[in-house]
Amino acid sequence: MFEAKLNEASVFKKIVESVKDGFKNCNFDCSEEGISMESMDDAHIALVSMKLGVEAFSSYRCDRSISLGLNIESLLKVLRTANNNDVLTMRAEDDGDLLTLVFEDSSNPDRISEYNLKLLNIDQEHMSIPEQEYTATVTLPSSEYQRIIRDLTQLGDSITIDAAKDGVRFTAEGDIGSGSVSLKANTNVGEDEKSIDIAVEEPVALGFNSKYLTQTCKAAPLAPRVSLNMCKRIPIFISYKLQAGHFSFFLAPQISE
């Protein structure tokens, strides 16, 4: 038996909203440690990885590790029926083929809604991602990151992120012209939610398809800060820290020929 209760259905809704554009079917792996999910897009350019630890839930029970294969679009149909502050309980039998989602309206205890979603058998490839030291890490407000990517995407299909010791620069070039946004490192490191924290051992510049970067911005409502971890010639690791877990992307860079 698996049963997990989230005090705010919106947490799960935001997670699922953030993966809807690139990822069709996902396995949510439930264990005694919490719920985790890893999925690659069809083009094998982006990988999303999520972990919600047991502490994220107001109650949590998982007798046996199970994998809940879900179609993201179907899951969203159900999650969108909920109010943000509804209490969400997810339940599945060990050998069942359904995930039950129950929503309780905190302002109207007399209303309870219940949905059953059919589980899918998803045969998924997994990436073995080695522990990686990143030589450049930029941490900034997620709203700022979202704005930069949104603004620059209008200029070109490709965005270069250039991290140096004193700042980070995002550049786009396209048919209509070019644009860039530079952010200088703040001195109030780590203290302020608005600060730009830059830790660069070695300057790095990597280019990405802006469509995929846009996808990594969709998680901005999940956390106030995002960290961009880069190293020469390997995928960027973009991570949002959740209260009890993380929501992250690996994104393969463009390789110059």
Partner: peptide, 14 residues
């Protein structure tokens, strides 16, 4: 020109 890399160019698939 730049070519789009794929994740398996960098990581192994299990």
């Amino acid at each position: 020109g730049a070519m789009q890399g794929r994740l398996e160019d960098f990581f192994k698939i299990k």
